[in-house]
């Protein structure tokens, strides 16, 4: 394999990984935009989505459903996982965030962190410590061009991720609820005065953000073939780096940031010692926070804030 096709292969991998990071980062950025708090439990919600995915997919595979109705299977898996995590997200909001909305930021952060530890260990106890294998529904077939290769699974995941992001953009900009969310993010008091139900808006944000994370969880499971109770941690930090890089609170920013973080990681692993790739991501995160805390598309450069 010559250098150009190798590079092309890495770009494909970067786009793939980046779109997954983008999806998770969107959850952070939306929640942050509304309540100005990091959702520490987001990584765990992502993992929960992956677990529901494996449970549903395994059940469907045993029924022999996957071979006969492939598209329907995928729809069922993603919808089930996303709706489960949406419910879980609302529950997390109700337990850990809502009672602390008026108290100090430190209390809210600690409460969210406690929730994250609770969920992660709850999943460990209920689903086991070891890896849980995902059924391999995508074969190794794929498209080859210019020496690089993209598998069907990767194509499917990238298309789905883009579709979800487009759907989110449409939701935020074209619907009443999306408008309510943008208004709440800009000025909570004013939004309340104008008759927007703040509680409901926050609940919906906590449904949509985690649901996107759940979709990313299923994608990770489908691609890497296994899920583990603690895999949310590393994805959480990377997605957070993506959200910060893009400018927290900005939806296009989260997408861009995810792609950049994915590219950095893949390129580092391709050309430099891959054991250090996580260190690089953390370093990028710290650098961005230090030099440009508002991010690439953060406040001031764009009007979109949700």
């Amino acid at each position: 394999m010559d250098l150009s096709s190798f590079l092309l292969q890495q770009i494909i991998n970067a786009v793939f990984l980046g779109s997954i990071y983008s999806l998770i980062a969107l959850g952070y950025t939306m929640v942050y935009g509304i309540i100005e708090l990091i959702n520490f439990a987001h990584g765990e919600l992502f993992t929960a989505g992956a677990f529901i995915g494996v449970i549903v997919l395994t059940a469907l595979q045993q029924m022999g459903f996957v071979e006969t109705h492939f598209v329907l299977t995928m729809i069922i898996v993603f919808v089930m996982s996303m709706s489960y995590v949406a419910v879980l997200g609302v529950a997390v909001e109700h337990v850990a965030y809502k009672p602390l909305r008026t108290s100090s930021r430190l209390s809210a952060l600690l409460s969210a962190l406690g929730m994250s530890i609770f969920l992660s260990n709850g999943m460990m106890l209920s689903q086991g410590v070891s890896d849980r294998a995902y059924p391999q529904v995508f074969g190794i077939e794929g498209i080859e061009f210019m020496g690089a290769r993209i598998t069907n699974g990767q194509i499917f995941i990238i298309i789905l991720a883009v579709a979800l992001m487009v759907g989110l953009q449409l939701f935020v900009h074209r619907t009443r609820l999306g408008k309510a969310m943008r208004a709440t993010a800009q000025n909570k008091t004013m939004a309340r005065i104008l008759g927007i139900d703040i509680d409901q808006t926050i609940r919906i944000t906590f449904m949509i953000g985690p649901a996107l994370g759940a979709a990313a969880g299923v994608m990770v499971g489908l691609h890497y073939g296994a899920v583990r109770f603690d895999m949310g941690f590393i994805f959480m930090i990377k997605a957070f780096a993506a959200a910060i890089l893009g400018g927290i609170g900005s939806i296009p920013g989260a997408m861009l940031g995810g792609l950049i973080i994915g590219t950095i990681e893949v390129m580092w692993a391709a050309f430099l010692p891959s054991a250090w790739k996580d260190v690089t991501t953390f370093t990028v995160l710290i650098m961005v926070l230090y030099f440009k805390p508002s991010g690439l598309l953060g406040e001031g450069t764009t009007e979109v804030r949700v």
Binding site: I38, L109, I244, P293
Partner: peptide, 27 residues
């Protein structure tokens, strides 16, 4: 680097630093 940051950014950055130290020791 974290002096100017707000509470939640600080939390994530210190988390990242903690992991960097561990990864450096590991690698």
């Amino acid at each position: 680097p974290t002096l100017k940051m707000r509470g939640d950014y600080l939390a994530i950055v210190t988390l990242g630093f903690g992991e960097i130290v561990r990864l450096v020791l590991n690698n």
